[in-house]
Write a protein that binds this DNA or RNA. Structure first.
Lengths: 363, 363
DNA sequence: CTGTTAGCGCGTTCAG
DNA sequence: CTGAACGCGCTAACAG
């Protein structure tokens, strides 16, 4: 069926080993035979069998990239940058380009483990886990065990957008590119507080997610620093102004309505991310409330569409493309890990039109 | 190093063939030995070597998905739906789940070919090419040759969002899920015409792209049907109101400024897609023009953010998730190809706030 | 510089 | 129902 090395060798009148050598170019071969072989390859339209090569050489062309959802631009941008560093583009720049296997976990822990197994099967050269981690004790342990085994067998592991692996400090290195979610969230809420807001609703992401937790912690740190800690009457009120949902638009819509029900005098809502924030905006508009006059709204991530939203969204920028590029280089072993194995990507407050001082309508 | 079939066999006191049989479950094995083997697998944390299996069985766990840019939600949504059908999720629903290899071509013909080679190397089980095709004679032929070879070697080929393969009708089947871009564009421009617009600018995508061509053709069909064909004075004017750019926001921004330069009395602008339309909106706003009072704007694709844009965008919906699902099933051989090998996905005009009748300011 | 020889780890005959 | 033997296509020693 398919033409093999042996076929090429026969056609060129050499041994298959010689063909292999000209193909890989990692061994001296005389110019004349090289040419003869190359001609035979062209004529026969020969394409190496990646699996056979991988088996024999004990190497792989695959790098796994786990994301929650490629349809979400957050992961899309990350994946795109990773791809650029991993893939054929990188190959053309002269570094053994590999194939990026993008795996959609949908945020499901089981899917995450399933994919890790599949990638282990394929003896992937690297695995990048992106986005917030599910923080159940059991799942953390399971993932950790898998990653340690993968790393032990030579697979490079990179975490991007989630906290470093905890636990015993032995085991092979797992490098991490993490985002300063907590700091960003803190600065965002500080911004609202300094505008004069005091009754601030918070639409958090799914529970048991590292990203959700960090952003919420940052939010509460800012509140506490203004004397709105959970032990104060006003702060206790703030606690009740937190609702959890998923990281999508409909979730923001529902959450905003719920928050208004709990506290009609709300003057600001902070959302878990930009998509959620757009849902919040839609709900407020449907309720006849104007943004930011009646209620200020803020998001997180600064995805491209946030600047075009109505009104343009105040948010926290995460340089996703930069993070993805860095993670990709690490996964390809083309860049040495940062000291301590953890690089933190800083986040930046972006103030736009969706936040303004609360209108103190008399009272 | 890694534990192999033989290790498991030794531990279970059976032959490696038996282990292979219980693993694949496609051969009768007695209950007791089966259990013994399974225990050994557990104890040793055995994970099959995908490459060895693929080599021996001449099958592959990979399905390639070529996209222009995963960071673009258009492709993200498509890829997500494809993934769901191809990946571990499908596996859990009980159909040999495969790994989706998402390849970013960046719209580059060379990258497209490079990836096709890489996938051929891996003996991919399927390949899905998404998005508009580059329509140069040379590249079309090159891709066609590659696809024919892949199909001949048993790889299932699916085109999604691009026109069917042209050329001699021999060769193995290549199924296509194509979008009715032309019809959608026609209806969109008809909508503007029926609102009363006559001086309509058009921001087209990159030249030599099937999507660009089809949308532009639809636009011009609508014009011609209203007696604004290229042979009429007014129609000839319309021809000069077309500028080409890339499928992104900055391109729309620049194009809008250029169009205003060519025709300050413009009352509407149709964009190649929603991202471009947002760029157009931004440019108009910066020029102090209001949408839709001064200028109506329309996009294409109906990506999620379009409804939240300012104002909400009139556009043409393509059911991308549905298309991706369908293409995924076809690539997995889980659904039989449509008669003729071509399924056309219909598009739907979505009218929102960004289009309105032109304000006939006296004159 | 080149050919010969072994495997890589698994699926699959073919006997038993 | 099970084991032994062979080969998938290629790379990597080892000789020459």
């Amino acid at each position: 069926m398919a033409v093999t090395l042996a076929d090429v060798a026969a056609r060129a009148g050499v041994s298959s080993a010689t063909v292999s050598r000209v193909l890989n170019g990692n061994y001296p071969v005389s110019g004349s035979t090289r040419e003869r072989v190359q001609r035979a390859v062209e004529e026969l339209d020969y394409v190496v069998n990646g699996q056979a090569r991988a088996l024999a050489a004990a190497t792989s062309d695959l790098v796994g990239v786990l994301v929650n959802d490629v349809a979400d631009p957050f992961f899309g941008i990350l994946a795109s940058a990773l791809q650029t560093e991993i893939g054929a583009g990188a190959a053309q720049r002269g570094g053994g380009g590999k194939l990026a296997v993008v795996c959609n976990t949908g945020g499901s822990p089981e899917a995450e483990l399933t994919y890790l197994t599949l990638l282990e099967r394929q003896r992937a050269a690297g695995v990048v886990l992106t986005g917030g981690a599910v923080e159940s004790e059991e799942h953390t342990a399971a993932v950790r065990a898998r990653l340690v085994r993968l790393a032990a067998s030579g697979t490079r592991i990179v975490l991007c957008g989630r906290p470093p692996l905890t636990g015993p400090d032995d085991g092979p290195p797992v490098t991490t590119v993490t985002f300063d979610n907590r700091g960003g969230a803190r600065r965002l809420t500080e911004h609202l507080l300094s505008l004069g807001h005091r009754r601030i609703g918070y639409v958090a992401g799914p529970v048991e997610r590292s990203t959700t937790r960090h952003r919420l912690e940052g939010h509460r740190e800012a509140l506490a620093a203004r004397g709105l800690g959970p032990d104060t009457p006003e702060g206790a009120g703030a606690l009740r102004l937190t609702v959890h949902g998923s990281y999508d638009r409909p979730s923001g819509y529902d959450a905003a309505l719920e928050l208004l029900r709990r506290e009609p005098r709300l003057t600001a809502i902070v959302a878990a991310n930009d998509s959620v924030a757009l849902g919040v905006c839609a709900a407020l508009r449907d309720r006849g409330l104007s943004i930011p006059d009646d209620v200020s709204v803020a998001g997180f991530d600064d995805l491209p569409f946030s600047a075009d939203a109505c009104p343009a969204l105040t948010t926290v920028r995460i340089p996703l493309a930069e993070a993805g590029t860095r993670a990709g280089r690490l996964a390809m072993g083309r860049q040495s890990p940062p000291p301590g194995g953890v690089a933190t990507i800083t986040t930046e407050l972006i103030v736009r039109a969706s936040t303004a001082p609360p209108v103190t309508s008399g009272s």
